[in-house]
């Protein structure tokens, strides 16, 4: 490869991409052959923990998985209940403290963990 093609950052040949994709997906599939698939259970338990504190609609839960070479990302997107319900839920949890702008806190939380790189244990994000 010449120095010029380096600067042009020539697109990687498709065969190279094919090989990389195969290596990643197959490493996971081979690992998955031994031992049960724990993801469905992990997802269920995570949700039940969250459900202890927040009244979530099971239909508004989105689960995404991205299998990577070095690390994988499991992303849980959970639509939280409307502001009013959330307020009372927060009040119930935290007692009679002044209202801590729950919506912003939830958003900030999601952004921070996204910036930290891959979430390995799930992220909770609020949608309006």
């Amino acid at each position: 490869m010449s120095i010029f093609s380096f600067f042009r950052s020539a697109p990687r040949p498709s065969a190279v991409q094919a090989k990389e994709r195969l290596q990643i997906v197959m490493a996971h599939e081979r690992a998955g052959r031994t031992g049960p698939d724990y993801l469905p259970m992990l997802q269920q338990e995570l949700l039940s923990v969250i459900a202890k504190y927040i009244d979530i609609d099971q239909n508004k839960v989105e689960v995404k998985l991205d299998r990577g070479g070095d690390c994988s990302t499991l992303e849980l997107n959970i639509e939280l209940p409307a502001r009013e319900q959330l307020k009372s839920a927060m009040a119930a949890v935290k007692g009679a403290k002044p209202e801590p702008k729950p919506a912003d806190t939830a958003d900030g939380e999601a952004k921070r963990s996204a910036a930290n790189g891959p979430l390995t244990d799930g992220g909770v994000k609020k949608r309006h």
Partner: peptide, 16 residues
């Protein structure tokens, strides 16, 4: 096609 980078090489497949 292998030479043009459009197809997996023998060695790639063997390695995998």
């Amino acid at each position: 096609r292998v030479e043009r980078g459009e197809m997996l090489k023998v060695d790639d497949v063997l390695e995998i």
